[in-house]
């Protein structure tokens, strides 16, 4: 399957990365090179093989359902590009 500039633009949109129109042909080309490389996987017979979910046979641990952390508003907001009155500030989301 070949990636054209329309698909490249759609992927960039999904990834929330702004790509200028003039950069799309080169990007589509790179995708095609990488996907061409990945196509080799189609040679492998994977019939009846489970997709790996965990590389070590282990069950995720569970812990007591109790609060173990919190009351760190200052630390949570410390690195925010824009924090006001104890909140993260962002541009208008709803028209």
């Amino acid at each position: 399957m070949s990636i054209d500039t329309t698909i490249a633009a759609r992927v960039a949109k999904l990834a929330r990365i702004k790509v200028e129109d003039e950069a799309l042909p080169a990007l589509a080309n790179e995708f095609n090179t990488i996907l061409g490389f990945i196509e080799q996987l189609n040679e492998v017979d994977v019939e009846g093989i489970e997709p790996m979910t965990s590389v070590t046979p282990m069950q995720l641990r569970r812990r007591e359902d109790v609060v173990t952390d919190g009351n760190q508003q200052d630390k949570v907001l410390f690195n925010a590009p824009d924090a006001r009155e104890g909140f993260f500030a962002v541009p208008k989301v709803v028209e």
Partner: peptide, 20 residues
């Protein structure tokens, strides 16, 4: 939003433009 760089936004830019 939470840490690191945020782009300078143009007038009228919304949250999607900020992400992108």
């Amino acid at each position: 939003v939470r840490y690191g760089h945020r782009a300078k936004l143009a007038a009228g830019d919304g949250i999607t433009e900020m992400y992108e």
